[in-house]
Amino acid sequence: MPQRIRRRYIAVKIDGNHPFNGKTLQDAVWNNMLRLFGEYGASQAELFLVEYDPERQQAIFCCSHKSLDLVKASIVATTKIGEEKTAIHILRVSGTLKSLRRKIQTIFL
């Protein structure tokens, strides 16, 4: 019987002065993951952007729980979004979106 895929939700804060959309953010992290771990590694991560708040410059990514370390390294190693220099900081990691949203409400970076 196929097992249920366990996921991890990662809340991040983007540090930079230039505005961009969610697609550009997702592409930046994906490209970085491809560079670091190749197509095989990236295919196991099942990474996608759940939501992006341009005002607070916060985003939530979802990935497979087995690839959490790989995805965290890819997110942290991202230095550019589009053509602009940026830094992405991981705020929290959680198993459900509900608990992640509750946790990040208390974080002030």
Binding site: D69, K72, A77, T86, A87, H89, I90
Partner: peptide
């Protein structure tokens, strides 16, 4: 912009 949180550096050592 090259500074990261301590835990982020720990995550990067996965490499």
């Amino acid at each position: 912009l090259l500074l990261r949180k301590p835990k982020d550096y720990a995550a990067l050592t996965y490499l």
